[in-house]
Write a protein that binds this DNA or RNA. Structure first.
Lengths: 140, 140
DNA sequence: TATAGATTTTGAAATCGTTACAAAGTTACG
DNA sequence: CGTAACTTTGTAACGATTTCAAAATCTATA
């Protein structure tokens, strides 16, 4: 499923964020490629489309999108954040130790209930680590 | 349950790591306080006991303990690692958005089975975010 | 179409946690 | 003892991110 720039622009205005060219480019890359890019990945991708864009602009855009609730920041490894589109059922992630790719994984439906009583659960991060099918096939 | 320095030293030698004073102090803090300290928390704690200790020594010790499989590095927030004692059943964590404390939480037993077939799961990180009972009580 | 006001972008410098590295100190063991 | 292996130290570097103030660009209203 691909989101048109018009759809994405509407999401932005709907969330009270002005749909500037750069913000739209950042959101479109996150929403349509679903590759969980880091800020630097995004900077390089956006640079191809808009040469001369500032790294700070990419960070600014990301903050705006995260604050607007359209994008989720994933803290999977120390030091680097990755970014995921939020318009879809909640899901976890799988990080392949071999190729580094990040895959979406379904969340067990009653996971929130497994927390101790008395805690108010607002968000769940579930991350698997291991080897993805592609790398398993290549390995042996 | 508290671990004596002798017990901890045996764990270290058993794992092939020389039980130096600093390493023992780091491990003891992580094992006995169970407060999921960051490297900087540990540096400050160890400094009280051994004034003049170098920050690098704390990092070196942490690396040794993580490599030895006695300590697990938690990547809960961007930028900072926290450290948890590993000698206990696998568990997830709850981070209170209000006070910042980190609590242990049980893992649902068949969580690994919920991953898509074809992936080899080596590790699971489950993190809840929300408000802890103490902060909930104080809030209203 | 002007123009003022608000918002966005820029680029350089700063920050923060962590790592690299080489020198100095310590320990184990023949 | 002597020497090789390991540990600690302190400084400098690193990389991702943030800060900040100036410049550019938009928007609304006249």
């Amino acid at each position: 499923m691909k989101y048109s720039d018009r759809q994405l622009a509407e999401m932005l205005t709907g969330a009270g964020v002005r749909p500037s060219l750069h913000r739209l480019a950042v959101l479109s890359t996150i929403a349509n490629d679903r590759c969980h890019p880091s800020a630097d990945d995004l900077y390089r991708r956006i640079s191809e489309q808009y040469p001369g864009v500032s790294r700070t602009t990419v960070y600014n855009s990301l903050h705006a999108l995260v604050d607007a609730g359209l994008v989720k920041e994933l803290k999977l490894e120390r030091g680097v954040s990755h970014f995921d589109f939020l318009l879809q059922p909640p899901h976890g992630h799988f990080i392949c130790s071999h190729c580094g790719r990040i895959f979406d994984m379904g969340l067990p439906p009653e996971l929130a209930d497994s927390a101790d009583p008395g805690f108010r659960i607002d968000a769940i991060d579930l991350n698997f680590k291991g080897i993805c099918p592609d790398c398993l096939a290549k390995q042996q």
